[in-house]
């Protein structure tokens, strides 16, 4: 019991350090603060359950991305509420930004929210500066496929953002 408690503590501290990864995933896959918190909790739980299978040969952050994205992609909900950017973005902080920047960020999120779950994962990993090799290893597709898909997704995002502007 004591061993389990200390393992949990150690694991929680590791997640605390790397939690930005989970936040990025929840930001892209949810529609508001309540959903975001639910998914955050679910990802933490799945990370803990998969932890015994974690092999040191992979980077901890890569493994975390794998589990977080797999959880978000498989997370089936019948109700798909529309995304509310007022809820998604922290309004107090947003007030300090220029309205132009605010609008651009909202447009980016609106565009990403319209992508399918797999494309969301690809663009998220690319935006987080992951190499094509790493993206391919996390998603289990070829490097060529990653490259082809990213070109298409970026073009799609560009079109969506410019159309809405």
């Amino acid at each position: 019991m004591k061993v389990l408690r200390s393992k949990k503590k150690e694991f929680s501290e590791m997640i605390e350090k790397h939690q930005a990864i989970i936040h990025r995933v929840t930001m892209v896959y949810t529609n508001g603060p309540a959903d975001r918190e639910d998914l955050f909790q679910e990802i933490c739980l799945q990370l803990w359950r998969s932890y015994p299978n974690f092999r040191e040969e992979a980077k901890f952050s890569t493994w975390m991305y794998r589990v977080a994205l797999n959880t978000a992609i498989s997370n089936v909900r019948k109700k798909n509420r529309d995304i509310h950017f007022e809820q998604l973005l922290d309004n107090d902080r947003m007030e300090t930004e220029s309205s132009d920047e605010k609008e651009q960020i909202q447009l980016l999120y609106r565009a990403i929210s319209k992508l399918n779950r797999i494309d969301k994962a690809l663009i998220l990993l690319w935006l987080d500066e992951k190499s094509y090799d790493e993206i391919a290893s996390i998603l289990g597709i070829s490097k060529t496929n990653v490259s082809v898909k990213l070109v298409r997704i970026k073009r799609k995002l560009e079109e969506m953002i410019f159309t809405q502007e």
Partner: peptide, 13 residues
């Protein structure tokens, strides 16, 4: 930019 704006809800261990 968006990421910096949304770092509000950090969870403790």
């Amino acid at each position: 930019k968006a990421e910096t704006l949304m770092e509000a809800s950090d969870y403790k261990s």
